[in-house]
Design a protein around this nucleic acid. Sequence first.
DNA 1: TCGGTTATCTTAACGCCCATCAGATTCTGA
DNA 2: TCAGAATCTGATGGGCGTTAAGATAACCGA
Lengths: 218, 218
Amino acid sequence: MTPKGGRYHHGDLRMALIDTAIELIDERGVRGFSVAEASRRLGVAVSAPYAHFADREELLAAVAVHAYHVFLSQLRPQMKPFRAPARRLAAIARAYVRFAGTNRPLFDVIFGAGVDKDRHPEVKDAERPLTDAVLDCVRALAGGDATAGELAVAVEAAAHGHAMLLLDGDLGHGEEVVELAAERAARVTLALVESRHLLGKPFNRHAPHPPPAADPRT
Amino acid sequence: MTPKGGRYHHGDLRMALIDTAIELIDERGVRGFSVAEASRRLGVAVSAPYAHFADREELLAAVAVHAYHVFLSQLRPQMKPFRAPARRLAAIARAYVRFAGTNRPLFDVIFGAGVDKDRHPEVKDAERPLTDAVLDCVRALAGGDATAGELAVAVEAAAHGHAMLLLDGDLGHGEEVVELAAERAARVTLALVESRHLLGKPFNRHAPHPPPAADPRT
DNA sequence: TCGGTTATCTTAACGCCCATCAGATTCTGA
DNA sequence: TCAGAATCTGATGGGCGTTAAGATAACCGA
């Protein structure tokens, strides 16, 4: 809370570290973030963070948890206007891409910081409301159908893929670009739902396995 | 070529570094890779690599270029059996996910090593045949239609999203899982193509903008 | 109010890593 | 043959993650 006025104890170093981490990641990317520099920026010894986090990864995991909370707080009002499951899925996809485009450091921490979600269950817990929301919609559409899981994966994949292309691709920057990508993701989601009958049908004839990997190195 | 038998010159240190980098990334992940350890494993001074690469990132960029070459060499025979553009797109998506599932270190270098493609045009060049292949198919489907670019993005997003969920999600491991994810990506691609008429129609009513970001940190 | 326990922070240190530099060795081609 | 270019070594500097031992502050029961 109080930004350290020369006192021995900081006040709330744990939370300050999370905030500063987001700042630094915003400035230099996940890869450029270092615990030491965060400490320096807070006027604290480089070893101080280790009273609150076991290691660097645990700090990043805490940032990821925060990121999920922010995302869900933005998602909920965007889902509210819609009752039809298909529209709700589209709203999720749209919110997902918007979040990536307008909160890049948070999105990057979730997917680009290399936080092992198996070793940090808090992150998985923070993620669960999102996957539950998707599953609820999908089940309402497909019932107990075996294609439900498939549709859920497809929806998540489409949203995530559009987000990645927005951030790393050649689409450019700016709010219009974000909204364009978000709208595309929403439309694709609707397309997936409407053609979900396709997902059940087998389509694997003429699908040869890959040959042994060649090695055309330069 | 020759693995250094005590000679002063290594023989082909540049290529050996690329190979060793892939080994190390396979063992410890992109994040755990270090130039120093690669040097040690090759019996060479830790400063030797800098005669061939300006810095760590340039070495990883070379690995990424190699990765694209491998992927394209696997993609081509998988596209060959198909002539219909839609089927060719599906084959691309399938090959994309297969590549991610069976060549994880290479896939991780491309997307998870933080290589700035703007600062390393070689990577962009190595990537181009892939994006061209997608664009060719899409244009054959949509002509000069304005939805062509949109469809291309959707296809790439779907493939990439399925690959990410395969690697980082809870789908499990093993060859069957890879093939399942690949087949799903292929089917989703077909669904996208068949419903591409949807992509042209506007769908933005009832799409509220996100509220100012709340901050429900723990 | 006091005193001990616990949480938090500091100082110091270790090992690893990236990167640079000067100089030694080998290769190349004119 | 030999000069210049390419490649590698050894040494060095600076940064980072992490741990250990001890100082300081906050807390809480008596």
